[in-house]
Measured scan of single mutants.
Amino acid sequence: RKEMTAACTPRRRIINLTSVLSLQEEINEQGHEVLREMLHNHSFVGCVNPQWALAQHQTKLYLLNTTKLSEELFYQILIYDFANFGVLRLSEPAPLFDLAMLALDSPESGWTEEDGPKEGLAEYIVEFLKKKAEMLADYFSLEIDEEGNLIGLPLLIDNYVPPLEGLPIFILRLATEVNWDEEKECFESLSKECAMFYSIRKQYISEESTLSGQQSEVPGSIPNSWKWTVEHIVYKALRSHILPPKHFTEDGNILQLANLPDLYKVFERC
């Protein structure tokens, strides 16, 4: 597991931080080997919608929660590849102030007048994250320049770009939802926020969305749709870069829909 690298990086740093090793061990302890084997050997059937997909393993048909699986995938990559990410360069710098204002204007932020003026909160978020810029760049390849612009994001899987519609809320939550006081809790909560931002979430995906850094293989055609990215990038990574937690067998994120021999018997009677 320590050699797990989802995106190509030129050289690998050895990380011996106790906090990170502890988080890696927790993933191992909570892992479910049968689910790992199923995901490793599954045959992708198709997307139901951005949140759900169908896959077959041996004779069984499964309904998989793409949102939760991708979130767990990105969390584990962030923990196992800690401080070893490439950088996704933004085509132009994104001012943190503008991103924070967009987030505060969104109902998702939960902002009320009692929280104070949005401009003041946005300025605080910019200054707060600028103070964390060195650590964010060093460990997470999340790059913020001296003017308070976001200029780079971590490359977690080759050819995958997170849904940038979720970027404003991500920046807001970096400042408000991460435990910045304790090292282990900081790395864990920061990785979880980043994983949620990178995950496939239906509120940020339309039929026209593209999450891939590449064009489709047909010359002159439109960019790959999110469905292509889910199948050929995300579920491909799920084959080798995730140890599913045991609770996925109990919380409805992986559901067995049918045993195909039983279905064949039904059709034979028709």
Rank of each mutant, 00 (worst) to 15 (best):
M4N: 08
I151W: 12
T229D: 10
I222P: 12
T67R: 04
F97G: 13
P223G: 13
K118Y: 06
I144G: 00
K132G: 03
E182Q: 14
D251G: 07
E113N: 08
E25A: 07
I254K: 02
K68Q: 10
E119Q: 12
I242K: 02
E25M: 06
E177T: 06
A122C: 11
T59H: 10
T18I: 10
H40Y: 10
V126L: 09
F44A: 00
E127W: 08
R173T: 02
L63D: 01
W52S: 02
L174V: 06
V230Y: 00
M196Y: 12
R13Y: 07
K184A: 08
D98I: 05
N149F: 09
A122N: 02
E71D: 05
T67Q: 08
Y62K: 00
E108R: 08
W228G: 07
L61I: 08
E268A: 08
E183W: 02
I27M: 03
D98E: 13
Q256W: 05
L64G: 00
L99Q: 13
E114F: 08
L61E: 02
P117D: 15
N28A: 12
G31A: 15
V161T: 14
G31H: 13
I79R: 01
V45S: 03
L121K: 15
Y62V: 08
S43H: 15
E147K: 11
S189I: 05
V266S: 15
N65W: 00
S225R: 14
F187E: 00
H32A: 12
P168I: 01
A53Y: 07
H247L: 07
C270T: 15
F267K: 15
G148K: 05
N16A: 07
Q215P: 07
L63R: 03
N253P: 10
A122R: 01
L54P: 01
E37D: 15
A55K: 00
W52T: 03
Y139L: 06
K68C: 09
I27W: 00
L23Y: 01
V218H: 14
V178H: 00
H42L: 11
G252W: 03
H247T: 14
F197H: 03
P244S: 01
E182Y: 11
P245K: 05
D158Y: 07
D105G: 13
K265D: 15
N28E: 13
P261H: 07
A94Q: 14
L129E: 01
G116V: 09
L142N: 00
L150F: 06
K184M: 09
G110I: 13
P50K: 09
V126W: 04
N65E: 04
D138E: 10
I233G: 06
E114Q: 12
R201E: 01
A83H: 04
V48E: 02
I79D: 01
K131V: 14
F170H: 03
E165M: 09
T210G: 08
I14R: 07
E26Y: 06
P107E: 14
K132H: 08
F197N: 01
L64Q: 00
D145A: 04
Y75R: 14
K184N: 04
N49A: 08
E147D: 12
L39T: 02
L64W: 04
E250C: 08
L17F: 12
Y80I: 09
C194G: 04
L142F: 12
I254V: 14
P223Y: 15
L211E: 14
M135I: 05
C194M: 14
K60C: 13
F267C: 15
V87G: 10
C186Y: 02
R11V: 12
L238T: 04
E72W: 03
P154V: 01
E119K: 08
A122D: 01
L255M: 12
F170Q: 01
E123I: 12
A175W: 12
A237V: 05
T112I: 11
H42Q: 09
L156N: 00
L69S: 02
S225D: 13
D262P: 09
R173Y: 01
C47T: 14
A7V: 08
H247M: 09
E147G: 12
T67E: 09
G116T: 06
G252D: 15
L121E: 09
W226H: 02
A6K: 04
P223F: 11
T176E: 10
H241V: 05
V161Q: 11
S189K: 11
R1S: 15
L260G: 10
A83T: 04
N65R: 00
A6I: 05
F267L: 15
V20P: 03
S199P: 01
L174T: 04
A83M: 06
S43T: 10
F267I: 15
N159F: 05
D145R: 01
E123A: 13
S43R: 09
E188W: 09
D115E: 11
P244L: 03
I233P: 00
Q76E: 03
E183L: 02
S189A: 11
V48H: 03
R269M: 05
I14L: 12
E92P: 09
L155I: 14
L129Y: 06
A53I: 04
I200A: 03
F44N: 02
L121Y: 12
L23S: 04
E165P: 08
E113K: 13
E177M: 07
E71Q: 13
K265G: 15
Q24H: 05
S240K: 15
K130G: 08
N41I: 04
P162E: 00
F170M: 04
G220Y: 13
S206M: 09
E72D: 03
P244G: 01
R1W: 10
P245F: 02
S43A: 13
E217A: 12
Y62S: 00
S109V: 11
F187R: 01
D138L: 05
F187N: 01
P261S: 10
L90K: 02
L164Y: 07
L102A: 15
E165Y: 04
S191L: 04
L61T: 08
P163S: 10
L142V: 07
E72S: 10
S206K: 14
I151C: 13
R269F: 04
W226E: 00
I242E: 01
G220S: 15
E250Q: 08
T210P: 07
Q215A: 14
N253S: 12
S43E: 08
V87F: 15
T9N: 11
E123D: 11
V218P: 15
Y204S: 03
L63E: 00
L190P: 00
D262L: 05
L88P: 00
I200W: 06
A83I: 00
E268T: 08
I157H: 02
N224Q: 11
T229N: 06
L99E: 04
V20L: 07
E25F: 07
Y204T: 04
E37Y: 05
E165N: 12
G148A: 09
L54N: 00
L69W: 05
I157M: 06
R13N: 07
K192D: 02
Q51A: 09
Y160T: 01
E217L: 14
L172W: 10
L99M: 10
K236C: 06
E123Q: 10
P162A: 03
L150K: 00
W228D: 07
Q215R: 11
Q24A: 11
R13F: 07
A100T: 12
I15F: 07
V161K: 06
K60T: 11
P95L: 09
K227V: 05
S221Y: 13
L136S: 03
P50M: 06
N224F: 14
T112L: 08
S22V: 15
L61A: 05
L136V: 05
T9S: 07
R201S: 03
I14N: 10
P261R: 13
